[in-house]
Amino acid sequence: MGSDIKSDVEYIHTNEALTFMQGVKDCIPTLLGYIGIGIAAGVIGTSAHLSIFEIGLLSALVYAGASQFIICAMLVAMSPPSAIIATTFIVNLRHFLMSAALAPHFTSYSLLRNVGIGALLTDESFGVASLRTSKGLPINDRWMNGLNVTAYITWIMACMAGGWIGSWIGNSEALGLDFALTAMFLALLVLQLAALPSSKLRHYLFLIACTIIAVYILSSFFSIYMAVLLATIICAAIGAVTEK
């Protein structure tokens, strides 16, 4: 009986330590990525003839780096609104997978809190959160909100700053800012693998090889965003089936 109470206290303590501020702190390593990509997205917004206010609105409402690049590119190409919206939908379908993977950890909270967490989920906040869960560490709503809100505010400010400096920076690709996105995914992947027990590493490396091949093959039949989505769905299934 006594030990039960003790473990309860310990549980509350570790959970208590996971504050909003801890979420803010855990977000800091990813901020440079958000700032780099955000500025780039803002610069591209300017080149698509969006006003700074429109760039701010875009980043606050859509809040997805890849989509914002695509929306701007399609605006420049004078694509019809329906095509822009449909493409954005496909590009962001991957969020469904990320939300589905994280949602089971937040089932004890109210619907409103869940919707709040889901609405601000990004590739990076998902990466940071799933890094914790794959290590078996707890996550809670306050910590997740700290992570999400920090990223959200940083993103909007970076996009608007990018829109502002867009007029005199010229080419953001020359500065390497566009690569911040890939570098961040690469780092999150390596961190995921480093957190694995060595017995599982071989299985995951096999899956990575499958995914690389799948994306390459699928991208000759589908748009690159559809290829990413399909490769993830298929290769995660291969992972589940071949698990020992």
Partner: peptide, 18 residues
């Protein structure tokens, strides 16, 4: 089980995409 493999596959796919 399937969901647990999503992060690594998705991150790999996003890296390859670039």
């Amino acid at each position: 089980k399937w969901l647990s493999y999503i992060p690594v596959c998705l991150l790999t796919a996003l890296v390859v995409q670039g």
